[in-house]
Structures are given as C-alpha cells and as structure tokens.
Simulated assay, not measured.
Amino acid sequence: MPSAPLFRFGVIADPQYADLEPNLTLNRYPAKSLDKLRDAIEEFNRHDLAFVVTLGDIIDRQWKSFDVILPVYEALRHAKHFLLGNHDFAVAPEHLGSVSARVGMPSAYYDFSHSGYRFIALDGNEISVFAPPEDDPRRQEAKALMKRLGDSGATNGQRWNAAISDAQFDWLAAKLREAKAAGEKVVVMNHYPVFPDNPHNALDSDRMLSLLAEHDHIIAYLNGHNHAGNFGVSDGTYFVNFMGMVDTEDTSAYSIVSVYDDRLEVTGFGRETDRTLALR
C-alpha cells in the first residue's frame, strides 16, 4: 500500500468575484466565481484537509463584493487562510487600510506551522500604486521601481504588480532562519510570481529569488496573479503559479496538494494541472 500523506491542503487562486458583466477580452467571468467557489468548497469538504488557502484577488473590485463572496467560505469545514492581491485593493480610498481586517486575516502577512512545515504568507502589495493610501510615499517608490524595470528592458514593471517592503523582507529572512533552526521545511505563498520570468512577476522578483536561493529547506513557492498559470524550478525550489478561478465561462480551477515525506502531489480540478514534485 502506498503511504498516506502527512497532510493535504486546498488551493484557490483569483476567484476575483464582482457583480459585473464578463470581460470577454480577458475571458473573465467575475459573477460566476460564486458558483465556482461553492463547487470547490463542496469538493474540499469531501476530503480531510489541514486548511484551504486563497492566494489573493478574492474580489475583482468594489468593497461590497466582500459582503457577497466571504459568506460563501462559511460552508468550508476546514481552516481557511487568505492572501491579498491587487484586485482586493480596487475599492474606495477610505477602505484601503482595512482590507486585511475585512477578510479576517490576523495581519497582512503572517506564518503558521503544520506537521514539520512552515507556511509563510506574504503581503505582496505593500509597495504598489494601488494598496497604500493615495498620498503614501510607497506609491512613488513603486513608480520608481516600475521605471527602473522598464528602463532595463524587464517586462514586469507593470502597474498591476507590486513588491514587499524592506521590513517585510527582513521578517521573511528571519522566518526562513527560524524555520531552518526548527528543522521545518518551508512553503512560501504570495499573490505575485517571482519565477519564471513573466510580465506578472513581482516588482522585486530578483531580490526575492536571491533570498530564496540561499535556503535549501524551501520546498515550494505558491502564487496566483498570472491567470494562465505557470511552473518552474530554480535552485531546487518549485515555483507553482495556480490558474485563475475567474477565467472562462464554464470551467473552474482549484487544487488539492498532498504532502508526503518525499514529494508533493498537486491534484488539479477543472483547468488546473496535476503535478508530482519530488523533494530533494
């Protein structure tokens, strides 16, 4: 008999709900995400999962969208963890400071441990032209970053991308050392990809990649944002970009990840890909 996994968890990326007409150019159907999410939760509830993580872009826009999609999650019988994405800040300026509280997050970035694994949930939105208050210097910082990337010929200097602050970067580095000392393997989660090279990558993807490359106990980096999905391996770490749930009229995308001693098994539902990721 094959051995049972240590644990399993569910993954959702970019439900991006709003009561809007479809965006046919991008093939996105924000209003249909409620039913897709209900179906995903029904499937998750059939399994023994440690938790379910949503990798950002819970809504497409409008503060009131949270009032409609968050109650759908109440049917989930597992623990739930949220990350925030760029669309979660497409709300009126007075709400920008309270998005993580509205979603019920302990803070905008945080970590938790499970069965010898440390999960680090980043707030990829800190340095951006959309998340900080309108007169915040971080908006200028983001513009400077975007310009620098554009001038260097990089494709990711886009206004829908973002970066983490120096304070959060130092926190991440400290958490990686802490997990190492505790003998834990690490899974880093962010809304924004950092690898492979892509127009959707975080504005600070080079700095992030350099930090991750210093550590051999980081198993995987999980993200959304690039709805087409993507995959890569760099310095022994798997970079898994999960597909956007909001895309297409009648297919969904979500996953269950099974964690074994020697591998991760990603079981994809709908458009999502199955993967077996052997651990070094």
Rank of each mutant, 00 (worst) to 15 (best):
R118I: 07
R8S: 12
P132R: 04
T155C: 13
A213Q: 07
H81F: 08
S165E: 00
K64M: 14
P106L: 01
N201E: 13
V194C: 09
D67L: 08
Q62V: 06
L203M: 05
E141K: 08
E42C: 13
E184I: 10
A4L: 15
A181K: 14
Q16L: 06
N201M: 12
E74F: 15
R28V: 01
L49F: 06
H47S: 12
S98T: 11
F231R: 06
F51N: 07
R280S: 14
E272K: 01
I12Q: 06
E74H: 14
G85S: 02
D35Q: 10
Q62M: 13
Q158W: 03
K175A: 11
R177E: 13
T155K: 13
F89P: 01
N125I: 03
F119G: 04
F51L: 04
I256K: 09
R159W: 15
M1K: 15
K80M: 14
S107F: 08
R28G: 01
E43G: 14
D247A: 13
V266T: 11
P106I: 03
K175P: 04
H227S: 02
V240I: 12
H78C: 11
D35W: 07
D235E: 15
T267Y: 05
D88Y: 02
R159K: 15
S65Y: 01
M243C: 05
V187Q: 07
L37A: 06
P199C: 10
A4F: 15
A174K: 12
I120N: 01
A79V: 13
Y238I: 07
R138L: 04
K185Y: 14
L20F: 00
D274C: 11
K143Y: 07
G124N: 02
P193F: 01
V72F: 04
A163W: 00
S115G: 14
I256W: 05
N86G: 02
L222D: 02
D39T: 12
L211E: 06
K175T: 11
A92K: 12
E126M: 05
L145P: 05
T25H: 15
A121C: 15
Y73W: 15
I69N: 03
V259Y: 03
D60A: 08
L6R: 15
D206F: 13
E134V: 12
P93N: 10
Q16W: 02
A18R: 00
A179Y: 01
V233G: 03
L37D: 08
I218L: 02
A18Y: 01
D204W: 00
A144V: 11
V91E: 09
V266P: 08
D250R: 10
A163H: 00
G183K: 09
D123S: 02
G104A: 00
L277D: 05
